[in-house]
Write a protein that binds this DNA or RNA. Structure first.
Lengths: 214, 214
DNA sequence: CAATCAAGTTAGAACCTCTCACATATGATT
DNA sequence: AATCATATGTGAGAGGTTCTAACTTGATTG
C-alpha cells in the first residue's frame, strides 16, 4: 500500500497519481505534521489537526498512511534527507580532507538541531515501528556515512578502515550529545558555555589526533 | 497543590498523608507509568491504563497530579534521582581522583540508558512544562555536578575552574551521545562497534589530556 | 462508454483526558 | 466525643482522538 513504486515516499514531487483530488495531500500532511511537531512538541500532534490544516476530513490521511506512526515516520524520513544534505553541504564548504570539513559536518548537525528541535527530537526519539522501517535505518547509516567520509579524507585512510569508523563514531556521538544537550537546556548552561565552532574544531582535532597516535 | 512541603515529591516514603485510602497511590502510579513507558514507549502510555494497574478509577490520578504531563514529570524526577545515585556509586567504586572514577560515571550513565531506554528517552525528551519545573532543571545540574566533581578531582583543580567545567561538559555530551546512539541502533551498529569500558576510559583520558595540554 | 481504481466524505465505535458533583475516611478542633 | 474541614476516592459525562466501514466521486484505461 505504501510501497507504491511510482510514488516517491516523501519528496513532494507531484506525481500524476498524487496530484489528484486535492493536489498532493501526502506532502501537505507531512508538512503540516512537521509544523505541529515543531511548535507543539513531538507529542502535541494529532492526525485530526493535520487534516484540518490541510483542509480535508479527518479520515482522509488514512488513505495515504496506515497509522499515525507512519505519518511521523514520513516526517522523520524527510527530515533525515534534509539533515544529510546539510551535512554534505557543510563538508563541501571546506577543502576536501581538511579538519574544517569534519567540523563543518558537526556544525551542520548542531545547526539543524537548533533550527528544528522538535523534529530533531522526533528523528532520534522514534520508537514505534523503528525496526519495521529499514529505510530509516538506511538513512541513518547514510548520515553516518557522511561523517565517515569526511574523517577518512582527513586521515588519508579508506572509509573501511576500522580506525576511521571508530573515530567517526566518536565524533558523531560527541556531536549528537552536544546537539541534544544544547536544545534541552537552552536557558542556561550549554548555549552560553561554549562557542560552537571553536568547540567543534578543537574536539575534532583532538579525536583525530588520538587516531594518529594510536 | 503539588507543592506540599510535607510530602517528598517522588520518593515512595509513605507519609501519613499519602498512606490513606489506597496506600500511597502517588508512588504506585509513578511506578506503573514508569513500567508503561518502558514497555510501550514514551508515547504509549495513558493515565487510564496506569490507574487501571493501580486498581483505582480513571479519575483518581487527577487528585495527585494536575496533568498527564505532571505524572511524566514525576517519573522523570524519580529517574533522575536514580541516575544520579548510579553515577555517584560509579565514581565511588574507584579511587578518588582516578581516571577510572571519571570513566565509571560515564559507564553508569550508559548502563542506565541501556537498562531503561524508555525512561532514559523520556528524561531527555520531555518538552511540556520543562521550564515550569525548576526542580528537574536542578536535578539535571545535579547530575552534571557529579561529572564536574569527578573531573575536578582527577585534574586536581577546583570545580569552579572553567577548564574543569569545559572538560566535564565535553565528557558529558560525549557519553550522552553514545548512550543515545546505543539505544537507538541496538540492532547493528553501536553495540558491536565498541566495547564500553575501554571506549570510555580512552575517551576520558583523551579529553582530560587535552585539558592538561591547553 | 463503461469498468475500475484512487482519493475523498460522513458516520460511528472505542478510547483517552480531564472536570464536576458526590461519597467517605481521617485528623483536628472544640 | 461530635463535628468540621479536608484529602482521597467514585461515577457520569463532555469533548477530542484514532481508526474502520460504507458510500461517493473523479480520472484512467481498455
Amino acid at each position: 500500500m505504501s510501497t507504491d513504486p511510482s510514488a516517491p515516499q516523501v519528496t513532494p514531487t507531484v506525481t500524476p497519481k498524487a496530484a489528484y483530488h486535492h493536489g498532493d495531500l501526502r506532502a501537505q500532511l507531512i508538512a503540516a505534521v512537521r509544523d505541529l511537531v515543531e511548535t507543539h512538541g513531538p507529542d502535541g500532534f494529532s492526525v485530526s489537526e493535520a487534516a484540518r490544516r490541510a483542509g480535508v476530513s479527518s479520515a482522509a490521511p488514512y488513505k495515504h498512511f496506515k497509522d499515525r506512526h507512519e505519518i511521523l515516520r514520513g516526517v522523520v524520513s524527510e527530515a533525515m534527507d534534509r539533515l544529510r544534505a546539510a551535512m554534505e553541504a557543510g563538508a563541501a564548504a571546506h577543502p576536501h580532507g581538511s579538519l574544517e570539513a569534519v567540523a563543518a559536518v558537526g556544525q551542520a548537525y548542531v545547526d539543524f538541531a537548533r533550527a528544528e528541535p522538535g523534529v530533531f527530537r522526533l528523528v532520534f526519539g522514534l520508537t514505534e515501528g523503528h525496526e519495521n522501517a529499514p529505510d530509516l535505518l538506511a538513512k541513518g547509516e547514510g548520515c553516518f556515512g557522511v561523517v565517515v567520509k569526511a574523517v577518512a579524507a582527513c586521515l588519508g585512510l579508506p572509509t573501511s578502515d576500522p580506525d576511521v569508523q571508530r573515530r567517526a563514531y566518536m565524533l558523531w556521538s560527541f556531536v549528537h550529545g552536544h546537539a541534544f544537550l544544547t536544545i534541552d537546556m537552552k536557558h542556561k548552561v550549554a548555549a552560553a558555555r561554549i562557542g560552537d565552532w571553536d568547540y567543534l574544531v578543537t574536539t575534532s582535532r583532538a579525536i583525530l589526533a588520538l587516531a594518529a597516535r594510536a
